[in-house]
């Protein structure tokens, strides 16, 4: 009885490590299979459509609103110090460095990631993946790789769109509504946002998040217990794990990128 707790703990840790190991092998296998996609570009386009284009609307709407809220909140704080001219800078830096990549990744996990997991899990449950194997078609190449690569491509694009429309949203509220000078909104931004330190690092972040979210989503789908309950649990795990990894990775990346400034 006494050792029960340790046994449970040990088993839980071993299970996690085991899963992580399988996920890593899976990731390498999928990447190894993905060169075969080069002559089959169409498969990739289909998936960029599914994970990118279909996520576009929610990203644009969310980005606009986040930018507008930043405009409001930034203005009410900055105006106390007479620094409302810096509103553009505040909005742009918040979006490009943090909110753009992070919120996009969270929305991506909820919209596209869960759909990927459910789709792959159902294909497994209905023997479609086994069927492909028996037709001498590698499902890692035919089904998984295009989805993984599409996720990795779509994420930075979505994050850039989120930030861009957020800056416009901040402009809408700050300049059109609250009367900040349009010239200083843009010029403060241009003076102080750096292409490498801010924008490029933001793109790097969204690339990393793209890999993490797409990887988790396809692995959970492929590893799902092939029953309706198993698929729903896997979908659930995708959203939880993706969100946590995005936030955790964000902390690590932020301290690496901006820690020394």
């Amino acid at each position: 009885m006494m050792f029960g707790f340790f046994a449970d703990l040990g088993r839980a840790v071993l299970d996690r490590v085991n899963r992580l190991g399988r996920a890593s092998i899976f990731f390498v296998q999928v990447l190894a299979a993905s060169w075969q996609l080069i002559p089959r570009f169409q498969l990739l386009l289909q998936q960029i459509y599914a994970v990118g284009v279909l996520t576009l609307l929610i990203i644009l709407v969310a980005g606009l609103f986040v930018g507008m809220v930043l405009g409001f909140q930034g203005y009410t704080t900055l105006v106390r110090f007479g620094a409302e001219d810096s509103l553009g800078l505040l909005v742009a830096l918040s979006l490009v460095r943090e909110l753009g990549p992070v919120v996009t990744a969270l929305l991506f996990a909820g919209r596209a990631g869960s759909a990927l997991t459910a789709e792959i899990g159902l294909m497994k449950a209905t023997e479609q993946l086994a069927g492909m194997e028996m037709m001498a078609v590698n499902p890692l190449m035919r089904v998984i790789a295009p989805r993984l690569i599409a996720g990795m491509i779509a994420m930075p694009i979505l994050a850039a769109l989120f930030s861009a429309i957020g800056v416009l949203g901040g402009h809408l509220v700050g300049v059109e509504l609250l009367g900040v000078d349009s010239g200083s909104y843009w010029s403060q931004m241009r003076e102080n946002v750096d292409i490498y330190d801010d924008i490029f690092n933001g793109v790097i972040k969204s690339l990393v998040f793209g890999v993490a979210c797409a990887w988790i989503a396809v692995f959970e789908g492929y590893d799902a217990v092939p029953t309706s309950e198993g698929v729903s649990r896997a979908t659930n795990r995708t959203v939880v794990y993706s969100s946590l990894s995005v936030l955790g990775l964000d902390f690590v990346l932020t301290s690496l990128m901006f820690g020394e400034a």
Binding site: V96, A164, V167, R190, V193, D194, D198, I199
Partner: peptide, 8 residues
């Protein structure tokens, strides 16, 4: 847009 209008 980010590079030219927001960045420098």
């Amino acid at each position: 847009m980010l590079a030219f209008m927001v960045g420098n």
